[in-house]
Design a protein around this nucleic acid. Structure first.
Lengths: 247, 247
DNA sequence: CGCGAACTTGATATTTGTCAACTAAGGTGG
DNA sequence: CCACCTTAGTTGACAAATATCAAGTTCGCG
């Protein structure tokens, strides 16, 4: 396995040095996938577990009427299908939004991990439950905020999630998605996405240009959309470096 | 534990007679809770696991601006907080929408179950993953459908979920929520809820009166909103009254 | 029988969608 | 390195969905 996963699981507060060692010695097969390719399709019963190492992917459903709705963004360190074995089949698809590097991990390997490493198991469950909490936040976000604030909220979330895997600076990150993709996340039209981005830029909150998002003033952006990071369930950073106190 | 839970877990396809026996002999303490009471508050770290036996409850967040968003409906057989132990604290609240009967199960009891009964553990995970799948469906629902179809979709889902716990007939069920509550689920104003209900009634699709929902023609309602039950991950009824030919 | 909560209705404002045309950017073969 | 071509982004005009406000009306219950 690779470092983005470990860096992310660090946030659970469960891992010890031994666990980190165990995780980093797991053998994986990484492959390169181009943009806009399905990794898993609705109805599949995937054999291996997929983990994003580089790039952005998404969970999506095709709705009656033909539009696509994106229900989750998967960034490096995120699993695509950790627990599908328990359900009979995928009820949604997963596809890449940018070129990606994907690790394939045999299901047996994951089962070996969860059978023999209690803390790693808990860390994996922590990741699953944090994903679920993120879904709830997105739902509330979509239900109660106007589109401007929805988008601001999404960017606040991504900033934190990408910082955790060392893919964002204090206030900026590479953002490979297209404006239409963004619309499919927020449930709004591509045209409207464009107008909102201009408004947010006009307010001096952020700039999205050439696939890079720069936030002018993080505190102000958070205030603008009422961002509360509690749903991400991260352990508080001590001093910039990720030194998680073991439980 | 009580029958709605067992009836629901039946849908996972994992339970054997022994498991049913084990579950029904779990000692629980049931209590009555009136309408509009918090069962768990944001920030809590609940001691016991709560299970809804009667009535409707909901997961909700209070948003900046004061509005409430309901992110999940909990009906008999649903857990409130099965896995919070892994996270540090609740990131949302749970409150009753009608008078409810709630079972309190000591966390130790649940742990004993999951330590010693592999199939019950899988059934509980099945329930958790199905909840997550429901969140995704709600998100796509809210993102891509107009409010009429959102509401129709919600009623299609509830019909199935309540049928599983024997609380709905072929085409009707008791629905204790207020129109304002419904608005808090769908993210629309109470006024608009009212108008949609009239439209749906006008179309001859359903009637909501005196806290009871009657669906005039289930197949037509499902077609109206493009309902696909796959996300509920229920096992197909073998001999059941309804040949659910998916969709 | 009366009171408060829930529901209903009309008028108007705001947000967001759709369509269609146009401009800018990135990638490819020559 | 350029010409071209495709995709992504931008703009304006207009239409549709939904919110808000305010004033009724009905329902359920003590």
């Amino acid at each position: 396995m690779h470092s983005p996963l470990i860096r992310k699981l660090e946030q659970s507060g469960f891992l010890t040095d031994v666990d980190r060692e165990t995780l980093s010695s797991v053998p994986t097969h990484a492959r390169r996938v181009e943009r806009q390719k399905d990794l898993i399709r609705e109805g599949d019963r995937p054999e291996n577990v997929l983990l994003v190492l580089e790039g952005f992917a998404c969970r999506y459903k095709l709705m009656p009427g033909g539009r696509r709705h994106i229900m989750a963004l998967l960034v490096p360190g995120d699993f695509c299908d950790l627990h599908v074995a328990i359900l009979k089949q995928m009820d949604h698809g997963i596809s890449t939004l940018s070129a990606c590097t994907i690790a394939e991990i045999p299901r047996a390997t994951v089962e070996e991990l969860t059978d023999n490493h209690r803390r790693i198991t808990r860390a994996l469950w922590w990741a699953t439950l944090a994903d679920e909490a993120t879904l709830r936040e997105w739902l509330a976000n979509m239900g109660q905020r106007d589109a401007n604030r929805q988008m601001a909220h999404l960017f606040c979330e991504l900033l934190l999630r990408l910082q955790v895997v060392s893919l964002a600076t204090e206030d900026a990150f590479d953002f490979p998605m297209t404006q239409t993709d963004l619309g499919d996340v927020l449930g709004i039209s591509g045209v409207h996405v464009n107008r909102i981005l201009q408004e947010l830029r006009g307010e001096g909150l952020l700039t999205l240009r050439r696939r890079r998002l720069e936030i002018s003033d993080v505190a102000r952006l958070k205030a603008y959309c009422g961002f509360n990071a509690n749903y991400l369930h991260m352990v508080p950073r001590v001093n910039g470096s990720s030194h998680a106190k073991s439980l």
